[in-house]
Design a binder for these strands. Structure first.
Length: 553
RNA sequence: GGCCCCGUGGUCAAGCGGUUAAGACACCGCCCUUUCACGGCGGAGUCAUGGGUUCGAUUCCCGUCGGGGUCACCA
Protein backbone atom coordinates (compact mmCIF):
# COMPACT_ATOMS: atom_id res chain seq x y z
CA UNK A 1 0.00 0.00 0.00
CA UNK A 2 1.33 3.43 -0.92
CA UNK A 3 -0.05 6.97 -1.11
CA UNK A 4 -1.26 6.45 -4.61
CA UNK A 5 -3.34 3.46 -3.66
CA UNK A 6 -4.57 5.27 -0.58
CA UNK A 7 -5.72 8.15 -2.73
CA UNK A 8 -7.55 5.71 -5.00
CA UNK A 9 -9.22 4.18 -2.01
CA UNK A 10 -10.44 7.57 -0.80
CA UNK A 11 -11.38 9.20 -4.10
CA UNK A 12 -11.81 6.42 -6.64
CA UNK A 13 -13.97 8.31 -9.07
CA UNK A 14 -12.47 11.71 -9.62
CA UNK A 15 -10.67 13.08 -12.62
CA UNK A 16 -7.00 13.75 -12.86
CA UNK A 17 -6.11 17.36 -12.21
CA UNK A 18 -4.62 17.69 -15.68
CA UNK A 19 -8.18 17.67 -16.95
CA UNK A 20 -9.01 20.82 -15.02
CA UNK A 21 -5.73 22.48 -15.74
CA UNK A 22 -6.50 22.18 -19.42
CA UNK A 23 -10.14 23.06 -19.11
CA UNK A 24 -9.37 26.33 -17.36
CA UNK A 25 -6.40 27.78 -19.17
CA UNK A 26 -4.56 30.98 -18.47
CA UNK A 27 -6.77 33.89 -19.50
CA UNK A 28 -5.99 35.77 -22.62
CA UNK A 29 -6.03 39.32 -21.35
CA UNK A 30 -4.12 42.49 -22.15
CA UNK A 31 -0.91 43.23 -20.31
CA UNK A 32 -1.59 44.37 -16.76
CA UNK A 33 -5.19 43.22 -16.73
CA UNK A 34 -6.37 42.25 -13.30
CA UNK A 35 -8.81 39.45 -12.53
CA UNK A 36 -10.77 39.97 -9.33
CA UNK A 37 -13.78 38.52 -7.73
CA UNK A 38 -16.47 39.02 -5.19
CA UNK A 39 -16.93 35.79 -3.28
CA UNK A 40 -19.64 36.05 -0.66
CA UNK A 41 -21.43 33.24 1.05
CA UNK A 42 -25.18 33.29 0.59
CA UNK A 43 -26.02 33.77 4.24
CA UNK A 44 -28.68 36.40 3.86
CA UNK A 45 -28.15 39.92 2.68
CA UNK A 46 -25.14 41.70 1.31
CA UNK A 47 -23.21 43.67 3.88
CA UNK A 48 -22.08 47.19 3.10
CA UNK A 49 -18.53 45.95 3.66
CA UNK A 50 -19.13 43.31 1.00
CA UNK A 51 -20.38 45.91 -1.41
CA UNK A 52 -17.28 47.95 -0.61
CA UNK A 53 -15.02 45.02 -1.47
CA UNK A 54 -16.96 44.31 -4.62
CA UNK A 55 -16.74 47.94 -5.68
CA UNK A 56 -13.00 48.00 -5.17
CA UNK A 57 -12.52 44.71 -6.97
CA UNK A 58 -14.73 45.73 -9.84
CA UNK A 59 -13.19 49.17 -10.17
CA UNK A 60 -9.66 47.84 -10.40
CA UNK A 61 -10.67 45.13 -12.87
CA UNK A 62 -12.46 47.64 -15.03
CA UNK A 63 -9.59 50.07 -14.92
CA UNK A 64 -7.14 47.46 -16.17
CA UNK A 65 -9.54 45.92 -18.69
CA UNK A 66 -9.59 42.75 -16.69
CA UNK A 67 -12.39 40.61 -15.35
CA UNK A 68 -14.56 40.90 -12.28
CA UNK A 69 -16.53 37.80 -11.41
CA UNK A 70 -18.99 36.65 -8.81
CA UNK A 71 -18.41 33.35 -7.08
CA UNK A 72 -20.76 31.99 -4.48
CA UNK A 73 -19.12 30.34 -1.50
CA UNK A 74 -21.79 27.98 -0.29
CA UNK A 75 -19.73 25.24 1.26
CA UNK A 76 -21.41 25.59 4.60
CA UNK A 77 -24.81 24.09 4.15
CA UNK A 78 -25.80 24.87 7.69
CA UNK A 79 -25.60 28.59 7.12
CA UNK A 80 -27.25 28.63 3.78
CA UNK A 81 -30.26 30.85 3.38
CA UNK A 82 -33.03 30.52 0.88
CA UNK A 83 -32.70 32.85 -2.09
CA UNK A 84 -29.29 33.86 -0.83
CA UNK A 85 -27.77 33.93 -4.29
CA UNK A 86 -30.66 35.89 -5.75
CA UNK A 87 -30.24 38.46 -3.02
CA UNK A 88 -26.57 38.91 -3.84
CA UNK A 89 -27.15 39.11 -7.57
CA UNK A 90 -29.94 41.65 -7.14
CA UNK A 91 -27.98 43.79 -4.74
CA UNK A 92 -25.13 44.05 -7.21
CA UNK A 93 -27.62 44.96 -9.91
CA UNK A 94 -29.17 47.62 -7.70
CA UNK A 95 -25.80 49.28 -7.59
CA UNK A 96 -25.19 48.76 -11.26
CA UNK A 97 -22.33 46.45 -10.43
CA UNK A 98 -23.26 43.27 -12.24
CA UNK A 99 -20.21 41.05 -12.67
CA UNK A 100 -18.56 40.29 -16.02
CA UNK A 101 -18.66 36.63 -15.20
CA UNK A 102 -20.14 34.27 -12.66
CA UNK A 103 -23.53 33.87 -11.10
CA UNK A 104 -26.30 35.96 -12.63
CA UNK A 105 -29.21 34.33 -10.84
CA UNK A 106 -29.80 31.54 -8.39
CA UNK A 107 -29.11 28.93 -11.04
CA UNK A 108 -27.65 30.67 -14.07
CA UNK A 109 -24.14 31.81 -14.70
CA UNK A 110 -22.00 33.24 -17.45
CA UNK A 111 -18.32 32.65 -18.20
CA UNK A 112 -16.02 29.78 -19.01
CA UNK A 113 -14.41 29.27 -15.66
CA UNK A 114 -17.40 27.86 -13.82
CA UNK A 115 -19.21 26.47 -12.09
CA UNK A 116 -19.13 29.62 -10.00
CA UNK A 117 -21.00 28.05 -7.13
CA UNK A 118 -18.72 26.07 -4.87
CA UNK A 119 -21.21 23.39 -3.99
CA UNK A 120 -21.18 22.47 -7.67
CA UNK A 121 -17.42 22.06 -7.72
CA UNK A 122 -17.18 19.24 -5.23
CA UNK A 123 -15.46 16.89 -7.67
CA UNK A 124 -12.87 19.47 -8.54
CA UNK A 125 -11.84 19.94 -4.95
CA UNK A 126 -11.72 16.23 -4.45
CA UNK A 127 -9.52 15.79 -7.49
CA UNK A 128 -7.00 18.16 -6.01
CA UNK A 129 -7.29 16.62 -2.58
CA UNK A 130 -6.53 13.30 -4.17
CA UNK A 131 -3.57 14.86 -5.88
CA UNK A 132 -2.22 15.99 -2.54
CA UNK A 133 -2.80 12.63 -0.93
CA UNK A 134 -0.89 10.95 -3.73
CA UNK A 135 2.10 13.04 -2.85
CA UNK A 136 1.72 12.51 0.87
CA UNK A 137 0.78 16.16 1.31
CA UNK A 138 -2.63 15.42 2.72
CA UNK A 139 -4.06 12.60 4.74
CA UNK A 140 -7.27 11.24 6.16
CA UNK A 141 -7.86 12.11 9.78
CA UNK A 142 -10.02 9.87 11.90
CA UNK A 143 -10.21 12.00 15.00
CA UNK A 144 -13.71 12.64 16.16
CA UNK A 145 -14.73 16.23 16.88
CA UNK A 146 -14.72 15.42 20.59
CA UNK A 147 -11.17 14.17 20.40
CA UNK A 148 -10.03 17.31 18.68
CA UNK A 149 -11.77 19.32 21.32
CA UNK A 150 -10.06 17.26 24.01
CA UNK A 151 -6.69 17.98 22.48
CA UNK A 152 -7.47 21.65 22.44
CA UNK A 153 -8.51 21.50 26.09
CA UNK A 154 -5.23 19.87 27.04
CA UNK A 155 -3.25 22.43 25.14
CA UNK A 156 -5.13 25.22 26.76
CA UNK A 157 -4.59 23.84 30.22
CA UNK A 158 -0.91 23.46 29.53
CA UNK A 159 -0.88 26.97 28.07
CA UNK A 160 0.51 25.88 24.78
CA UNK A 161 -0.53 26.94 21.35
CA UNK A 162 -3.75 25.19 20.43
CA UNK A 163 -4.40 23.36 17.21
CA UNK A 164 -3.84 20.26 15.18
CA UNK A 165 -0.14 20.31 14.45
CA UNK A 166 3.17 18.56 15.12
CA UNK A 167 2.94 15.96 17.84
CA UNK A 168 -0.68 16.82 18.45
CA UNK A 169 -1.63 15.81 14.96
CA UNK A 170 -2.36 12.22 15.87
CA UNK A 171 -3.37 11.00 12.46
CA UNK A 172 -0.57 12.59 10.53
CA UNK A 173 1.82 9.81 11.49
CA UNK A 174 -0.44 6.86 10.90
CA UNK A 175 1.05 4.49 8.36
CA UNK A 176 -0.59 4.21 5.01
CA UNK A 177 -1.65 0.71 5.95
CA UNK A 178 -3.26 1.89 9.15
CA UNK A 179 -5.13 4.56 7.27
CA UNK A 180 -6.32 2.15 4.62
CA UNK A 181 -7.38 -0.30 7.28
CA UNK A 182 -9.48 2.26 9.14
CA UNK A 183 -11.13 3.33 5.94
CA UNK A 184 -11.95 -0.24 5.06
CA UNK A 185 -13.40 -0.67 8.52
CA UNK A 186 -15.79 2.14 7.67
CA UNK A 187 -14.43 4.68 10.10
CA UNK A 188 -15.43 8.28 9.44
CA UNK A 189 -12.76 10.67 8.39
CA UNK A 190 -11.97 14.02 6.94
CA UNK A 191 -8.98 15.12 4.88
CA UNK A 192 -6.28 17.26 6.42
CA UNK A 193 -3.46 19.12 4.79
CA UNK A 194 -0.05 17.96 5.97
CA UNK A 195 1.63 21.24 6.67
CA UNK A 196 5.35 21.42 5.93
CA UNK A 197 5.60 24.63 7.95
CA UNK A 198 7.44 25.41 11.14
CA UNK A 199 6.16 27.86 13.65
CA UNK A 200 9.64 29.10 14.50
CA UNK A 201 10.25 30.28 10.97
CA UNK A 202 8.94 33.50 9.54
CA UNK A 203 7.48 34.17 6.17
CA UNK A 204 7.31 37.53 4.52
CA UNK A 205 4.21 38.65 2.76
CA UNK A 206 3.72 41.82 0.83
CA UNK A 207 0.12 42.83 0.85
CA UNK A 208 -0.99 45.46 -1.64
CA UNK A 209 -2.81 47.39 1.03
CA UNK A 210 -1.25 46.39 4.31
CA UNK A 211 2.31 46.42 3.04
CA UNK A 212 5.00 44.15 4.43
CA UNK A 213 3.71 41.76 7.03
CA UNK A 214 5.77 39.02 8.68
CA UNK A 215 4.14 35.94 10.08
CA UNK A 216 5.27 32.71 11.61
CA UNK A 217 4.83 29.93 9.08
CA UNK A 218 1.67 27.93 9.26
CA UNK A 219 2.15 24.53 10.84
CA UNK A 220 -1.46 23.58 11.36
CA UNK A 221 -2.76 20.55 9.57
CA UNK A 222 -5.99 22.22 8.66
CA UNK A 223 -9.01 20.40 7.35
CA UNK A 224 -9.34 20.69 3.59
CA UNK A 225 -12.25 18.33 2.96
CA UNK A 226 -15.01 18.18 5.53
CA UNK A 227 -17.09 15.18 6.49
CA UNK A 228 -19.73 16.19 3.98
CA UNK A 229 -17.17 15.99 1.20
CA UNK A 230 -17.11 19.74 0.67
CA UNK A 231 -13.97 21.77 1.07
CA UNK A 232 -13.21 24.34 3.75
CA UNK A 233 -12.82 27.96 2.76
CA UNK A 234 -9.05 27.77 2.61
CA UNK A 235 -8.88 24.86 0.24
CA UNK A 236 -11.65 26.14 -1.97
CA UNK A 237 -9.94 29.51 -2.16
CA UNK A 238 -6.70 27.98 -3.38
CA UNK A 239 -8.33 25.74 -5.95
CA UNK A 240 -10.86 28.24 -7.23
CA UNK A 241 -8.69 31.28 -7.47
CA UNK A 242 -6.09 29.21 -9.24
CA UNK A 243 -8.51 27.61 -11.67
CA UNK A 244 -10.45 30.82 -12.24
CA UNK A 245 -7.15 32.55 -12.82
CA UNK A 246 -7.71 35.26 -10.29
CA UNK A 247 -4.74 37.60 -10.25
CA UNK A 248 -5.72 39.74 -7.28
CA UNK A 249 -7.57 38.49 -4.26
CA UNK A 250 -9.35 41.45 -2.74
CA UNK A 251 -11.05 40.53 0.48
CA UNK A 252 -11.74 41.63 4.01
CA UNK A 253 -8.73 41.89 6.29
CA UNK A 254 -10.09 39.31 8.67
CA UNK A 255 -8.33 36.94 6.26
CA UNK A 256 -4.94 38.50 6.68
CA UNK A 257 -3.84 36.09 9.32
CA UNK A 258 -4.69 33.17 7.05
CA UNK A 259 -2.22 34.30 4.44
CA UNK A 260 0.61 32.03 5.63
CA UNK A 261 -1.71 29.07 5.26
CA UNK A 262 -2.95 30.15 1.88
CA UNK A 263 0.51 30.78 0.53
CA UNK A 264 1.54 27.37 1.74
CA UNK A 265 -1.44 25.77 0.09
CA UNK A 266 -0.64 27.41 -3.23
CA UNK A 267 2.96 26.33 -2.87
CA UNK A 268 2.19 22.69 -2.11
CA UNK A 269 -0.43 22.53 -4.81
CA UNK A 270 2.12 23.83 -7.30
CA UNK A 271 0.10 26.95 -8.06
CA UNK A 272 1.26 30.46 -8.54
CA UNK A 273 -0.15 32.50 -5.69
CA UNK A 274 -2.28 35.53 -6.47
CA UNK A 275 -1.55 38.97 -5.13
CA UNK A 276 -3.50 39.86 -2.03
CA UNK A 277 -5.18 43.08 -1.04
CA UNK A 278 -6.73 42.99 2.41
CA UNK A 279 -9.32 45.66 2.94
CA UNK A 280 -10.00 47.19 6.33
CA UNK A 281 -13.57 46.88 7.44
CA UNK A 282 -16.00 49.73 7.75
CA UNK A 283 -16.51 50.45 11.39
CA UNK A 284 -19.11 52.03 13.57
CA UNK A 285 -18.68 54.06 16.69
CA UNK A 286 -20.12 52.17 19.59
CA UNK A 287 -19.92 53.89 22.95
CA UNK A 288 -16.51 55.30 22.27
CA UNK A 289 -15.23 52.02 20.89
CA UNK A 290 -15.00 50.96 17.30
CA UNK A 291 -16.60 47.85 15.96
CA UNK A 292 -17.52 46.43 12.64
CA UNK A 293 -20.89 47.34 11.26
CA UNK A 294 -23.04 44.50 12.46
CA UNK A 295 -25.84 42.93 10.51
CA UNK A 296 -27.78 42.37 13.68
CA UNK A 297 -27.41 45.73 15.38
CA UNK A 298 -27.04 48.20 12.54
CA UNK A 299 -29.67 48.50 9.84
CA UNK A 300 -27.21 50.45 7.68
CA UNK A 301 -24.99 47.37 7.53
CA UNK A 302 -27.28 45.80 4.96
CA UNK A 303 -27.20 47.25 1.46
CA UNK A 304 -30.97 46.83 1.28
CA UNK A 305 -31.17 49.70 3.75
CA UNK A 306 -29.86 52.20 1.21
CA UNK A 307 -32.35 51.10 -1.32
CA UNK A 308 -35.20 51.40 1.14
CA UNK A 309 -34.09 54.82 2.25
CA UNK A 310 -33.76 55.83 -1.34
CA UNK A 311 -30.14 56.88 -1.08
CA UNK A 312 -28.99 56.88 -4.71
CA UNK A 313 -26.73 54.01 -5.63
CA UNK A 314 -24.23 56.45 -7.08
CA UNK A 315 -24.05 58.31 -3.81
CA UNK A 316 -23.27 55.12 -1.92
CA UNK A 317 -20.64 54.19 -4.46
CA UNK A 318 -19.06 57.61 -4.41
CA UNK A 319 -18.97 57.57 -0.65
CA UNK A 320 -17.36 54.15 -0.64
CA UNK A 321 -14.88 55.17 -3.30
CA UNK A 322 -14.06 58.12 -1.15
CA UNK A 323 -13.26 55.88 1.78
CA UNK A 324 -11.19 53.71 -0.52
CA UNK A 325 -9.13 56.52 -2.02
CA UNK A 326 -9.43 59.82 -0.24
CA UNK A 327 -8.08 61.57 -3.31
CA UNK A 328 -11.42 60.81 -4.87
CA UNK A 329 -13.14 63.90 -3.50
CA UNK A 330 -10.45 66.21 -4.82
CA UNK A 331 -10.84 64.58 -8.17
CA UNK A 332 -14.59 64.91 -7.94
CA UNK A 333 -14.38 68.60 -7.24
CA UNK A 334 -12.12 69.06 -10.21
CA UNK A 335 -14.36 66.90 -12.40
CA UNK A 336 -17.88 67.47 -11.13
CA UNK A 337 -19.56 65.89 -14.09
CA UNK A 338 -17.21 63.07 -14.94
CA UNK A 339 -18.27 59.49 -14.52
CA UNK A 340 -16.81 57.92 -11.44
CA UNK A 341 -15.36 55.16 -13.60
CA UNK A 342 -12.93 57.72 -14.97
CA UNK A 343 -11.33 58.21 -11.58
CA UNK A 344 -7.85 56.75 -11.46
CA UNK A 345 -8.35 54.34 -8.61
CA UNK A 346 -5.26 53.02 -6.84
CA UNK A 347 -5.45 49.83 -4.82
CA UNK A 348 -2.27 50.57 -2.91
CA UNK A 349 -3.56 53.95 -1.75
CA UNK A 350 -6.25 52.37 0.34
CA UNK A 351 -6.26 53.05 4.03
CA UNK A 352 -4.63 50.50 6.29
CA UNK A 353 -7.04 51.05 9.14
CA UNK A 354 -10.80 50.83 9.25
CA UNK A 355 -12.90 53.94 8.65
CA UNK A 356 -15.86 54.91 10.76
CA UNK A 357 -19.03 54.96 8.76
CA UNK A 358 -20.27 58.53 8.31
CA UNK A 359 -23.93 58.73 7.37
CA UNK A 360 -23.89 62.52 7.37
CA UNK A 361 -21.22 62.59 4.76
CA UNK A 362 -23.01 59.98 2.70
CA UNK A 363 -26.16 62.09 2.74
CA UNK A 364 -24.17 65.12 1.74
CA UNK A 365 -22.91 63.22 -1.27
CA UNK A 366 -26.48 62.17 -1.93
CA UNK A 367 -27.50 65.84 -2.07
CA UNK A 368 -24.80 66.64 -4.54
CA UNK A 369 -25.54 63.64 -6.71
CA UNK A 370 -29.24 64.47 -6.85
CA UNK A 371 -28.62 68.18 -7.40
CA UNK A 372 -26.86 67.34 -10.63
CA UNK A 373 -29.81 65.43 -12.01
CA UNK A 374 -32.35 66.89 -14.41
CA UNK A 375 -35.97 67.20 -13.39
CA UNK A 376 -36.70 64.20 -15.60
CA UNK A 377 -34.13 62.07 -13.84
CA UNK A 378 -35.35 63.14 -10.43
CA UNK A 379 -38.87 62.33 -11.47
CA UNK A 380 -37.97 58.96 -12.86
CA UNK A 381 -35.87 57.90 -9.90
CA UNK A 382 -38.21 59.09 -7.23
CA UNK A 383 -41.13 57.44 -8.96
CA UNK A 384 -39.19 54.21 -9.20
CA UNK A 385 -38.46 54.40 -5.50
CA UNK A 386 -42.01 55.42 -4.61
CA UNK A 387 -43.53 52.53 -6.51
CA UNK A 388 -41.73 50.18 -4.21
CA UNK A 389 -41.86 52.04 -0.93
CA UNK A 390 -44.36 54.89 -0.87
CA UNK A 391 -47.85 54.64 -2.24
CA UNK A 392 -48.81 58.18 -1.38
CA UNK A 393 -45.83 59.59 -3.25
CA UNK A 394 -46.59 57.38 -6.22
CA UNK A 395 -50.05 58.87 -6.28
CA UNK A 396 -48.65 62.39 -6.09
CA UNK A 397 -46.34 61.73 -9.00
CA UNK A 398 -49.06 60.42 -11.27
CA UNK A 399 -49.38 63.77 -13.00
CA UNK A 400 -46.01 63.72 -14.69
CA UNK A 401 -46.27 67.08 -16.35
CA UNK A 402 -46.96 68.83 -13.09
CA UNK A 403 -44.34 66.84 -11.19
CA UNK A 404 -41.73 67.83 -13.73
CA UNK A 405 -42.58 71.46 -13.17
CA UNK A 406 -42.26 71.01 -9.44
CA UNK A 407 -38.93 69.22 -9.74
CA UNK A 408 -37.79 71.80 -12.24
CA UNK A 409 -37.88 74.57 -9.64
CA UNK A 410 -34.33 75.84 -9.18
CA UNK A 411 -32.87 72.92 -11.02
CA UNK A 412 -30.68 72.77 -14.05
CA UNK A 413 -29.00 76.10 -13.35
CA UNK A 414 -25.41 76.64 -12.24
CA UNK A 415 -26.26 76.57 -8.57
CA UNK A 416 -29.00 73.99 -8.21
CA UNK A 417 -30.69 73.48 -4.90
CA UNK A 418 -29.30 70.77 -2.68
CA UNK A 419 -32.20 69.88 -0.48
CA UNK A 420 -32.89 66.29 -1.42
CA UNK A 421 -30.36 63.79 -0.17
CA UNK A 422 -32.45 60.67 -0.69
CA UNK A 423 -35.67 59.71 -2.39
CA UNK A 424 -37.45 59.33 0.89
CA UNK A 425 -36.98 63.10 1.32
CA UNK A 426 -38.94 63.88 -1.81
CA UNK A 427 -42.43 63.72 -0.39
CA UNK A 428 -41.79 66.22 2.38
CA UNK A 429 -39.99 68.34 -0.12
CA UNK A 430 -42.81 68.75 -2.60
CA UNK A 431 -45.88 68.12 -0.47
CA UNK A 432 -47.01 71.70 -0.29
CA UNK A 433 -47.15 71.90 -4.06
CA UNK A 434 -50.14 69.59 -3.95
CA UNK A 435 -53.41 71.20 -2.90
CA UNK A 436 -54.88 68.20 -1.16
CA UNK A 437 -51.79 67.90 1.00
CA UNK A 438 -51.42 71.62 1.48
CA UNK A 439 -54.95 72.27 2.58
CA UNK A 440 -55.17 68.98 4.37
CA UNK A 441 -52.30 69.81 6.70
CA UNK A 442 -52.97 71.60 9.92
CA UNK A 443 -52.01 75.16 9.23
CA UNK A 444 -49.92 76.51 12.01
CA UNK A 445 -48.21 79.78 11.55
CA UNK A 446 -44.63 78.80 12.23
CA UNK A 447 -43.00 82.16 11.79
CA UNK A 448 -42.62 84.11 15.01
CA UNK A 449 -40.26 87.03 14.52
CA UNK A 450 -40.71 90.51 13.09
CA UNK A 451 -44.24 90.32 11.72
CA UNK A 452 -46.44 88.16 13.87
CA UNK A 453 -49.56 90.14 14.61
CA UNK A 454 -52.62 89.07 12.73
CA UNK A 455 -53.52 92.54 11.56
CA UNK A 456 -50.25 93.14 9.78
CA UNK A 457 -50.28 89.72 8.20
CA UNK A 458 -53.79 90.16 6.98
CA UNK A 459 -53.01 93.58 5.64
CA UNK A 460 -49.97 92.34 3.76
CA UNK A 461 -51.83 89.49 2.19
CA UNK A 462 -54.81 91.59 1.19
CA UNK A 463 -52.67 94.35 -0.23
CA UNK A 464 -50.69 91.84 -2.16
CA UNK A 465 -53.71 90.24 -3.72
CA UNK A 466 -55.50 93.43 -4.50
CA UNK A 467 -52.74 95.76 -5.48
CA UNK A 468 -49.51 94.03 -6.28
CA UNK A 469 -49.90 90.49 -7.50
CA UNK A 470 -49.81 90.00 -11.24
CA UNK A 471 -49.02 86.57 -12.49
CA UNK A 472 -47.58 87.99 -15.67
CA UNK A 473 -44.81 89.95 -14.00
CA UNK A 474 -41.28 88.94 -14.68
CA UNK A 475 -39.13 88.14 -11.71
CA UNK A 476 -37.65 91.60 -11.31
CA UNK A 477 -41.01 93.33 -11.46
CA UNK A 478 -42.47 90.76 -9.14
CA UNK A 479 -39.82 91.43 -6.55
CA UNK A 480 -39.93 95.19 -6.98
CA UNK A 481 -43.60 95.00 -6.14
CA UNK A 482 -42.91 93.13 -2.96
CA UNK A 483 -40.52 95.90 -2.07
CA UNK A 484 -43.20 98.47 -2.77
CA UNK A 485 -45.58 96.57 -0.57
CA UNK A 486 -42.96 96.50 2.12
CA UNK A 487 -42.48 100.23 1.93
CA UNK A 488 -46.19 100.82 1.98
CA UNK A 489 -46.35 98.84 5.19
CA UNK A 490 -43.74 101.16 6.64
CA UNK A 491 -40.98 98.55 6.69
CA UNK A 492 -37.53 98.68 5.15
CA UNK A 493 -37.53 97.93 1.45
CA UNK A 494 -33.91 96.84 1.58
CA UNK A 495 -32.39 94.49 4.09
CA UNK A 496 -29.23 96.60 4.10
CA UNK A 497 -31.19 99.64 5.05
CA UNK A 498 -32.81 97.68 7.83
CA UNK A 499 -29.46 96.56 9.16
CA UNK A 500 -27.89 99.98 8.78
CA UNK A 501 -30.61 101.60 10.88
CA UNK A 502 -31.25 99.37 13.81
CA UNK A 503 -34.45 100.11 15.60
CA UNK A 504 -35.82 102.31 12.86
CA UNK A 505 -37.86 99.64 11.12
CA UNK A 506 -40.06 96.94 12.48
CA UNK A 507 -39.34 94.59 9.59
CA UNK A 508 -37.80 94.36 6.16
CA UNK A 509 -38.62 92.97 2.76
CA UNK A 510 -37.45 89.52 3.80
CA UNK A 511 -40.01 89.42 6.56
CA UNK A 512 -42.77 90.39 4.20
CA UNK A 513 -41.61 87.71 1.81
CA UNK A 514 -41.73 85.25 4.61
CA UNK A 515 -45.32 86.14 5.38
CA UNK A 516 -46.19 85.42 1.77
CA UNK A 517 -44.11 82.29 1.72
CA UNK A 518 -45.76 80.90 4.81
CA UNK A 519 -49.21 81.64 3.45
CA UNK A 520 -48.32 80.07 0.15
CA UNK A 521 -46.46 77.00 1.31
CA UNK A 522 -46.94 76.81 5.08
CA UNK A 523 -43.23 76.70 5.56
CA UNK A 524 -40.39 79.14 5.99
CA UNK A 525 -37.91 77.22 3.95
CA UNK A 526 -38.66 76.69 0.27
CA UNK A 527 -36.97 77.15 -3.05
CA UNK A 528 -37.40 80.31 -5.05
CA UNK A 529 -40.84 81.75 -4.35
CA UNK A 530 -41.24 83.34 -7.76
CA UNK A 531 -40.85 79.97 -9.44
CA UNK A 532 -43.21 78.38 -6.97
CA UNK A 533 -45.87 80.95 -7.76
CA UNK A 534 -45.37 80.39 -11.47
CA UNK A 535 -45.90 76.68 -11.04
CA UNK A 536 -48.89 77.16 -8.77
CA UNK A 537 -50.56 79.62 -11.14
CA UNK A 538 -52.77 82.58 -10.37
CA UNK A 539 -55.89 80.86 -9.09
CA UNK A 540 -54.09 78.65 -6.67
CA UNK A 541 -51.88 81.44 -5.43
CA UNK A 542 -54.88 83.58 -4.61
CA UNK A 543 -56.76 80.72 -3.10
CA UNK A 544 -53.88 79.99 -0.77
CA UNK A 545 -53.39 83.59 0.24
CA UNK A 546 -57.09 83.96 0.94
CA UNK A 547 -57.07 80.78 2.89
CA UNK A 548 -54.47 82.29 5.18
CA UNK A 549 -56.48 85.45 5.59
CA UNK A 550 -59.51 83.43 6.57
CA UNK A 551 -57.53 81.28 8.94
CA UNK A 552 -56.32 84.44 10.60
CA UNK A 553 -59.65 86.07 11.19
C1' G B 1 -3.45 34.89 26.38
C1' G B 2 -0.22 33.87 21.56
C1' C B 3 0.38 35.94 16.74
C1' C B 4 -0.61 40.07 13.33
C1' C B 5 -2.19 45.07 11.99
C1' C B 6 -3.29 50.12 13.22
C1' G B 7 -3.10 55.07 16.21
C1' U B 8 -2.76 63.00 12.33
C1' G B 9 -8.77 67.83 14.42
C1' G B 10 -15.70 65.34 16.06
C1' U B 11 -15.41 62.11 11.28
C1' C B 12 -12.78 60.64 6.50
C1' A B 13 -7.88 61.88 5.63
C1' A B 14 -3.08 64.17 2.65
C1' G B 15 1.89 64.07 4.36
C1' C B 16 6.77 59.52 4.56
C1' G B 17 13.28 63.69 8.42
C1' G B 18 13.06 70.63 7.96
C1' U B 19 5.44 72.21 5.81
C1' U B 20 2.27 78.56 8.39
C1' A B 21 0.62 70.11 9.19
C1' A B 22 -3.52 70.10 2.60
C1' G B 23 -8.55 69.02 1.50
C1' A B 24 -13.70 67.12 2.47
C1' C B 25 -18.07 66.40 5.90
C1' A B 26 -19.84 68.51 10.45
C1' C B 27 -19.49 73.14 13.59
C1' C B 28 -19.09 78.78 14.21
C1' G B 29 -18.86 83.83 12.00
C1' C B 30 -19.27 87.15 7.84
C1' C B 31 -20.83 88.17 2.71
C1' C B 32 -24.36 87.19 -1.24
C1' U B 33 -29.63 86.23 -1.42
C1' U B 34 -36.77 88.13 -0.26
C1' U B 35 -36.05 83.63 3.89
C1' C B 36 -33.77 78.82 4.05
C1' A B 37 -30.61 76.27 1.04
C1' C B 38 -26.72 76.92 -2.66
C1' G B 39 -22.28 79.68 -3.41
C1' G B 40 -18.05 82.82 -1.63
C1' C B 41 -14.75 84.33 2.37
C1' G B 42 -12.92 83.52 7.19
C1' G B 43 -12.55 80.82 12.10
C1' A B 44 -12.00 77.17 15.96
C1' G B 45 -9.96 72.33 16.27
C1' U B 46 -5.15 67.24 15.31
C1' C B 47 0.24 64.50 14.91
C1' A B 48 -2.00 58.78 21.61
C1' U B 49 2.14 58.65 25.25
C1' G B 50 7.28 58.03 27.28
C1' G B 51 12.11 57.25 25.84
C1' G B 52 15.84 57.22 22.18
C1' U B 53 18.47 58.26 16.95
C1' U B 54 19.35 63.08 14.66
C1' C B 55 21.50 69.76 14.09
C1' G B 56 16.16 68.78 13.54
C1' A B 57 11.12 64.33 14.43
C1' U B 58 4.06 63.78 12.78
C1' U B 59 7.57 61.18 9.75
C1' C B 60 12.96 56.34 11.84
C1' C B 61 13.78 52.72 16.39
C1' C B 62 12.12 50.75 21.32
C1' G B 63 8.65 50.62 25.37
C1' U B 64 3.71 51.95 27.25
C1' C B 65 -1.27 52.78 26.46
C1' G B 66 -5.50 52.50 23.25
C1' G B 67 -8.20 50.26 19.05
C1' G B 68 -8.95 46.24 15.59
C1' G B 69 -8.23 41.27 13.51
C1' U B 70 -7.24 36.07 14.17
C1' C B 71 -6.52 31.50 16.71
C1' A B 72 -13.45 25.90 13.83
C1' C B 73 -15.16 19.83 9.96
C1' C B 74 -17.90 29.06 9.57
C1' A B 75 -16.82 31.82 5.84
Amino acid sequence: MDYKELSELIFPNVKDISYYEEKYPERNLPEGAVVTRFAPSPTGFVHIGGLYQALVARTIAQKTKGVFFLRVEDTDQKREVENGVTGIVNSLKDFDMAPDEGMISDTEEIGKYGPYKQSLRKEIYQAYAKYLIQQGKAYPCFCKPEEVEEIRQKQENAKIRPGYYGVWAKCRNLTVEEMAEKIKQGENYIIRFKSPGREDRKIKHKDIIKGNVDFPENDQDIVIIKADGLPTYHFAHAIDDHLMRTTHVIRSDEWLSSVPLHLQLFQELGFKAPKYAHISPIMKNDNGGKRKLSKRKDPEAAVEYYKKEGIPADAVKEYLLNIANSTFENWRRANPNAKMEEFDFQLNKMSVSGALFDMIKLLDIGKTVISKMTAEEVYEKSLEWAKEYDEELTEMLKNEEYALKVFGIERGNKKPRKDISKWSDVKENIKYMYDDKFFGEIQEYPYQPAISDKESIEKILKLYIEKYYDENDDKQTWFDKIKELTTEMGYAGEVKEFKANPGMYKAHVGDVSTVLRVALTSRTNTPDMYEIMQVLGKDRVIKRLENQINANS
